[in-house]
Design a binder for these strands. Structure first.
Length: 267
DNA sequence: AGCTCACCCTGGACGC
DNA sequence: TGCGTCCAGGGTGAGC
């Protein structure tokens, strides 16, 4: 389940492709293409000048002022492999690079998508701020929560509020902030919002340091799993002791999503 | 406008 | 062993 820390880790692992020239590009399943501002043939011959991230989106920037924007959904992977490797099942796009290397996009569940984008500004216009951007402060978070009557958990998952938070980190963030996931977003006071803001930065930063969470599917560009799963406080730990108070972690459904929390530590 | 919920998809876990 | 059922969840869109 690639959320911000996983996508950031993949982005960093794809460093070796920067500077390489695209020698071929094949889309093997057209239904994974979400938006197409230009033909794939336009990418061939371009140089990859950067790999960046916005929220949960990975952006492969090409020298022709065009971008490949990839969303990995739940089970998507971008892997660097030798061109001689056989094409694995559920491979939906192959980017051939100079030096007989490929970047391959695999996604068994096909919740992910690829876009061929000219103007990324427009593409990302509905996304909220990057949680680790220094300009993202508690005041802005407060402003974004104020008009939301829904529970804080689904509001944290709303990419228009803050970009990059998914189900795992929403639960971890709310635990770190000591906030019950069913609390109304607009009812949080200044102190609670400052705790939430600090928890967002802290949890995301720590998860990136551990190279993301691998529950089952997530791998970086070198096919390596993350390590943060052993540091989770509540997510996936239903019935196990809360790391703070020792009481069993609870599980419920909020906003249609499985939600883990500690009934003692999260008021 | 904002909230809630069903839907998409497939592999793995689980029960019988 | 095998079959059926359920579950995971990001984003989207329908309906309220």
């Amino acid at each position: 389940m690639p959320e911000l820390p996983e996508v950031e880790t993949i982005k960093r692992s794809l460093g070796p492709i920067v500077g390489k020239t695209v020698t071929g590009l094949m889309v093997l399943r057209s239904d994974i293409v979400k938006r197409c501002d230009f033909g794939v043939e336009n990418a061939v011959g371009s140089e990859i000048i950067d790999v960046t991230r916005r929220g949960k989106y990975l952006v492969i920037k090409l020298s022709c002022a065009r971008h490949l924007v990839v969303h990995l959904g739940m089970t998507g992977r971008l892997l660097m492999v030798a061109s001689s490797e056989p094409i694995a099942d559920h491979t939906h796009m192959v980017i051939n690079l100079e030096g007989e290397k490929d970047v391959r996009y695999q996604d068994p569940r096909r919740f992910g998508n690829i876009s061929f984008v000219k103007d990324t500004g427009g593409f990302f216009s509905s996304l909220g701020p990057e949680p680790l951007d220094p300009s993202f402060g508690p005041e802005e978070l407060a402003r974004r929560l104020k008009r939301r009557s829904a529970s804080i958990k689904p509001v944290l998952l709303d990419q228009g509020v803050v970009a990059g938070i998914g189900n795992i980190y929403a639960d971890e963030i709310l635990f770190a902030a000591g906030l019950h996931p069913a609390r109304g977003a607009s009812e949080l006071n200044e102190y609670e919002i400052s705790r939430l803001h600090a928890a967002i930065k802290e949890v995301i930063t720590r998860a990136i340091e551990w190279r993301g969470t691998t529950f089952r599917d997530y791998r970086d560009g070198f096919n390596q799993p993350g390590q943060f799963q052993t540091h989770l406080a509540v997510y996936g730990r239903y019935g196990q002791p809360c790391p703070k108070c020792g009481q069993p972690v609870q599980k419920t459904v909020i906003g249609g999503r499985t939600t883990h929390y500690c009934a003692i530590c999260q008021e």
